[in-house]
């Protein structure tokens, strides 16, 4: 069907404006099939609008996109038959029960009543919602609602799943469960496009990441490449005795490189991304008898990646694209 193409999504110049707001201002995407692809960006970056164009919910103002080989405008119906959407606002009906939600989707996709019910029960059981199957979704916890939402997206397993901020607002335990489900989806062959504001989430799950800000792609690559493009990691050291810090700083300076003294009077760090040199430096401290409380070698975090790419932190909404409402 996709005639040998290994790209699940190919978009060029996608753009969408709402009045004066350029929600998406020319986005190119090349998402390989069979992997998790992360779309990372702060509030208002245009993630949801991008997903909504790719899921054929709103037509783009400009640009083109092919999803699994089908144009999102001229072959929208074919695209809909292959994808599923788990939206940012929970895309389940709060006024129905969990079970009714899944039966509804099953019926809409063409299952007969008995088959729709059987599939609903199978999913409720697998996703740990069976106990609340008869409760109205508005009484669900955030984690249960999210799991139900994803369950509704796999009533018929899609070839490509759009997940828009699937873990926003979840506690770590619920978040881990969602991550496990996403990994299971990909393991069974579904391509996942995952929007997130959490750098850690993209780092944990995604094989490839595109960073968008104010409607534009500002970086693209694997998590490792993005980190490398920002430069060095750091060797962090914390001493037992703060009084030895000047001596430790001298030793680290000569073993690895530029040293930064941290606010904690017993801590210091040195720019370094090579594990062998870090080991040598730690050895030198040990031979000099500088007692260590602990040490670690960090890769740069995606937070730092974001800061260096955009000049502002991920948590700060970009002033030009703040929501009007």
């Amino acid at each position: 069907m996709t005639s040998g193409s290994t790209l699940a999504i190919e978009a060029t110049g996608l753009a969408k404006s709402y009045g004066e707001t350029r929600a998406v201002a020319g986005v190119d995407l090349a998402v390989p099939a069979g992997a998790i692809y992360g779309v990372l960006g702060p509030n208002g970056a245009g993630k949801t609008t991008t997903i909504r164009m790719l899921a054929t919910i709103v037509p783009p103002d400009a640009g083109t996109a092919r999803v699994l080989g089908h144009d999102v405008v001229t072959e929208a119906d074919a695209v809909r038959g292959l994808v599923s959407l788990t939206g940012q606002l929970a895309s389940v009906d709060e006024e129905l029960t969990g079970r009714e939600n899944l039966v509804l989707v099953g019926r809409l996709l063409g299952h007969r009543r008995a088959a729709a019910r059987a599939r609903a029960d199978e999913l409720l059981e697998a996703f740990g919602i069976a106990g609340a199957a008869g409760k109205l979704v508005k009484h669900y916890s955030g984690g249960m609602r999210r799991r139900l939402d994803i369950a509704a997206s796999i009533v018929v397993t899609p070839q490509l799943a759009f997940l828009d901020e699937p873990t926003t607002g979840l506690d770590p335990r619920s978040r881990n469960q969602v991550w496990e489900i996403v990994r299971a989806l990909v393991a069974e062959g579904t391509t996942v496009l995952l929007c997130t504001q959490y750098l850690e989430e993209a780092d944990q799950l995604a094989d490839g990441i595109v960073v968008i800000d104010r409607g534009r792609v500002i970086a693209e690559g694997t998590p490792g490449q993005l980190k490398a493009s920002v430069g060095n990691g750091a060797l962090h050291v914390r001493l037992l005795d703060p009084a030895r810090r000047p001596e430790a700083a001298r030793l680290l300076e000569s073993a690895v490189g530029t040293v930064t003294l941290e606010p904690d009077p017993a801590a210091l760090s040195a720019a370094c991304s090579d594990a062998d040199r870090a080991a040598t430096a730690v050895g030198a401290l040990g031979r000099a008898g500088v007692g260590l409380a602990d040490f670690s070698l960090d890769q740069p975090s995606l937070d730092e990646v974001f800061l260096s790419l955009t000049g502002h932190l991920a948590e700060e909404p970009a002033p030009a694209t703040q929501e009007a409402s």
Partner: peptide, 11 residues
């Protein structure tokens, strides 16, 4: 409600 987006994404 977010469920409308699901309906719009169904075939």
């Amino acid at each position: 409600k977010g469920v409308v987006d699901r309906f719009r994404s169904l075939p």
